[in-house]
Write a protein that binds this DNA or RNA. Sequence first.
DNA 1: TTCCGACAGTGGGGTCGCAAT
DNA 2: ATTGCGACCCCACTATCGGAA
Length: 512
Amino acid sequence: MLLTRLADVSREVAAVPARSRKIALLAELFREADAEDVPIVIPYLAGRLPQGRLGVGWKVLSRPVAPAGEPTLSVREADALLTELGTVSGPGSQAERARLVGELMSAATADEQRFLLGLITGEVRQGALDAVAVEGLAQATGAPAGDVRRAVMLAGSLQSVARALLADGPAALQSFRLTVGRPVQPMLAHTASSVTEAVGRLGACAVEEKLDGIRVQVHRDGDHVRLYTRTLDDITDRLPEVTRAARELAGSRFILDGEVLALDEAGRPRSFQETAGRVGSRVDVATAAQAVPVSPVFFDVLSVDGRDLLDLPFAERHAELARLAPEPMRVRRTLVSGPEEAGAAEEFSRQTLLRGHEGVVVKALDAPYSAGRRGASWLKVKPVHTLDLVVLAAEWGHGRRTGKLSNLHLGARAQDGGFVMLGKTFKGMTDAMLAWQTERLRGLAVEENGYVVTVRPELVVEVAYDGLQRSSRYPAGVTLRFARVLRYREDKRPDEADTVETLLAAHPQVRP
DNA sequence: TTCCGACAGTGGGGTCGCAAT
DNA sequence: ATTGCGACCCCACTATCGGAA
């Protein structure tokens, strides 16, 4: 199959708004693809490269290459070049990667170049990624969409399911079972604005502490232990102490879900930055482990002794977990019968925050483990802080925000009467706000430099954020975590905005 | 008919590791 | 040694479609 066919379909998919039409277009293409093309065509149309990381990004791709006049590049040829691209390393590798990109792009037409660019940067913008591709695959093969989705969650990848399904038909889905050693998509949580609200929505529930670390899925089969992140990357080699801890648990065959984080001598959590740095260290693991040891803390179990527990109610899964993991290796929790005990849940949340943790997750006791879903039966609640800050500049948006000033540079008031930049945000804006702020900020513009428009510091905006963290990038030495816009405060003057001093005073545990 | 769950899109900051300077 | 870049951790929020209520 020629790459141009994929580029055409991707453009068509992008052009139709209806999800049902997108699915039908994908299904048509999947049916057309022959067996050898399928493992390439499916991920490509799901907006992902089967190779994963390539070591190539915007910098290399932004160099223009004269396009080919006629579409002659096949899907397999493109894939072979990309595979080669992903394996280049060592001195001279950047030049070699640039050369390979040039080779690929010069063989592609302008349309194909656009498609490849989107694929490599992960921005296909066709309104269809994995979930829509799964529906398309189901339609192309006549398999029930729910069964395909479940197989993908259990396999951890769309590709392997697609290959089996197109080779052997719907019966092949049976072979995708929960297996120790094969990671599954973890269950995710929704957000609730308060503990009381969360308990009100779920009824009988467990309120568990939310630890600010790295999600980890622990697979053990005898002495063989594997550790996976939320995106199913294997991080076993980086966390030897977690592997040891898993070997000391009561069972010998299980899959556990939990969080790893660094604790200080008193058992209080160290900053997320310290935990993330440790988990990210791959080269000298022994030294990193010495400096920042991490501990696993579990909250769920998916499999024990070959039994698949996914469909069991949480209460029963937790009973299994309690048999496997001793209390210090489990998340702290309290059980609540319903809204009448919301007070106790709130109190537990307060205590959790005092112990230095991020918040709580409220979980329905009767809910199954919804692998890969953002199930409504897990609700996270974290404290939200707010500030009134001044807009110092804004950046032109991309994609559906093209032509709109989107990403705001946020400043706090300094002692000298000036403003200190604390970070940026593009979150929380409605289309109406985007239109409004584009006009308003244009009127305040003093300089335009590339995609950054600097403005007179006159507009005050109320911003929500989750906390303060150290920063080497911003002048105050700190930056806001997960900042988002709540509303504009046209009733406030910039000299009424919050100051750096009040911000630092509100977070005494964080020092620049 | 209205409501709501699931998805895609739009990017944020930090850290690490690698290659180039 | 320092810098630039890419990958991958953490993540919030809005718009939209389409099935559920």
